[in-house]
């Protein structure tokens, strides 16, 4: 017996969410607003987390909110990279005409990495270990996008 199916789309519902960031991330975003990268340090194992967090995964100890803060420089090292043709934003995702390089950057003095676009650079010039620096957005709102991306430091080779 042949099976007939119906395929339909729903057009009427979209769910909107708003995620509370918590006190540690709130302080991090406060820092971004004044162009300061903040992290916090686990007092037991001395690991530094950027962005900061309440719990050290290694020790399962709570990192006290009032101290253990570390001010970091805006430079770092490129730990990994790739390119993508899909731009993701709040509006959804779309295909771009040019490939965008993105990479994992470890801030100097931290033990974690963040993922951001790599600006003004061709894929062929990328290697692991390059020194990079934050490029701030013109408008600072206390939002992850306050960091627009990272640029390669000139004369900063391995």
């Amino acid at each position: 017996m042949t099976r007939k199916r119906i395929e339909i789309t729903t057009g009427f519902v979209q769910a909107d969410y708003n995620f509370w960031v918590g006190k540690y991330m709130d302080k991090f975003y406060d820092g971004l607003e004044s162009k300061q990268v903040l992290g916090n340090r686990c007092p037991t194992c001395n690991r530094v987390f950027v962005p900061p967090r309440k719990v050290c995964g290694n020790c399962f100890k709570t990192i006290d909110l009032s101290n253990n803060w570390v001010k970091l420089k805006d430079t770092g090292t490129l730990r990994n990279f790739t390119t993508t043709r899909i731009a993701v934003s709040e509006a959804g995702k779309k295909k771009t005409s040019e490939a965008i390089p993105i990479g994992m950057v470890q801030f100097d003095g931290s033990d974690t990495s963040v993922v951001y676009p790599l600006l003004d650079v061709q894929e062929k010039d990328l290697t692991i270990g390059l020194k990079v620096q934050v490029v701030w957005n013109d408008e600072l709102k206390g939002h992850p996008r306050d960091i627009k991306g990272f640029r390669m430091l000139k004369g900063g080779e391995r």
Binding site: F19, G22, V55
Partner: peptide, 11 residues
């Protein structure tokens, strides 16, 4: 619980 994110709350 506007003072925590979901991970902190479970913790």
């Amino acid at each position: 619980r506007s003072d925590v994110n979901m991970a902190e709350m479970a913790n």
